[in-house]
């Protein structure tokens, strides 16, 4: 059990409660009233602390070693899971796994980053940092799902694509880029969930889909808070500042129209009640599949395109934030127009 710094007051209170319970078992002293007060206090404290987590604290929960990983969710939500291995070119990447399973009675393909449960397994799984062969295996499985009209689930949980010599030699950038392009055209329903860490291109490499969700305490960012603070603050310890600036929480992404919805976690994080977490996720996925099932493939692909087409905020014509005036190209339109939802040209 790993205890995070900001959780310590809760743990201390819980220890007090346990001690008091022991006392009440030994002696004849009635402590039930005191016990009730303490329990109530503990719940209040949890609500206070977990209800007001800073972005950096959320990053720590997203990285919590007890947090459920892809294989945990598969075990809890699905049956008949059969892992499929290898990219057919180079190797089997155990940091990015996938396979077929039965979800609520229906065959599905599921792909996800997988971290290790201990150091030994993490060496095998590369701490959830995939190599190019991981992304290529993922694409192979996506195309298989497409042929058999299976819905596709993608579970994101990676600090980032692996920065290694072999990864560069084998084309990490190419593997991710190809996935971004091909996922846009995969003719089956794709539901993406950030279950833990959404680390940049390594996350997005399996992150294109019809509905995108984030678990309440997951994060999604263009760069890790550590990387960002090292580059922009020239100080690797300014992680809190960087985490704030990067707007990487589920709430931030929802506000910026980059995800469809946030999936609630049990108080304190998914690992505090894995079963409840899995049930909540399962119900969200089932509902999502049902909604998407109402669309024709043609409409599904069009909406997938439009979803990503709309992402980003910019202006056309007017005065830039630093005071330069730029006339709008076409005449007869407003001086300054905020464009958040431009329609595709074709």
């Amino acid at each position: 059990m790993t205890i995070l710094e900001f959780e310590k007051p809760i743990v201390e209170l819980e220890q007090k409660i346990e001690e008091l319970k022991k006392v009440s078992l030994k002696g004849n002293v009635d402590v039930s009233e005191e016990l009730e007060t303490l329990k109530e206090k503990a719940l209040q404290l949890k609500k206070e602390i977990y209800g007001a987590l800073t972005p950096w604290q959320k990053v720590q929960i997203a990285r919590h070693p007890d947090r459920p990983y892809t294989l945990d969710y598969i075990k809890m939500m699905m049956e008949d899971f059969t892992e499929l291995h290898g990219d057919r070119y180079f190797a089997d990447d155990q940091a990015l796994i996938g396979g077929v399973a039965r979800f609520m009675g229906e065959p599905v393909m599921v792909i996800g980053h997988q971290k290790g449960l201990d150091t030994k397994e993490n060496l095998k799984r590369n701490f959830g940092c995939a190599n190019p062969e991981g992304y290529r295996k993922a694409l192979r499985l996506m195309k298989l799902a497409e042929r058999f009209e299976m819905p596709l689930f993608c579970f994101i949980d990676t600090p980032g694509a692996y920065p290694g010599l072999g990864a560069e030699e084998r084309g990490q950038a190419e593997a991710i880029a190809v996935n971004l392009r091909e996922m846009m055209g995969i003719k089956t329903r794709i539901v993406v969930v950030v279950i833990g860490e959404g680390g940049s291109g390594g996350a997005l490499g399996i992150g294109v889909g019809d509905q995108i969700f984030m678990l309440e305490n997951s994060y999604y960012s263009v760069i890790s808070p550590e990387g960002c603070s090292a580059i922009l603050w020239k100080d690797p310890k300014k992680t809190q500042d960087a985490a704030n600036a990067l707007r990487l929480t589920a709430e931030d992404l929802k506000k910026n129209n980059l995800i469809d919805d946030i999936i609630a976690e049990p108080l304190g994080g998914g690992h505090k009640n894995m079963e409840l977490m899995a049930i909540t996720l399962r119900d969200n996925l089932a509902e999502s599949l049902e909604q998407l099932g109402k669309l024709s493939i043609d409409k599904l692909l069009k909406e997938r395109y439009n979803k990503f087409r709309k992402m980003g905020v910019f202006f056309e014509g007017g005065i830039t934030p630093y005071g330069v005036e730029k006339p709008k190209e076409e005449p007869n339109s407003e001086d300054k127009k905020k464009v958040n939802n431009p329609l595709p040209v074709s």
């Binding site: 395109y305 990503f308 087409r309």
Partner: peptide, 20 residues
């Protein structure tokens, strides 16, 4: 970095257009 995930998603957006 200054546009964080809004920047990240431009990767998907440009690749989507290239797919077509």
């Amino acid at each position: 970095m200054q546009e964080s995930t809004l920047s990240l998603m431009q990767m998907a957006k440009t690749c989507a257009a290239l797919e077509r």
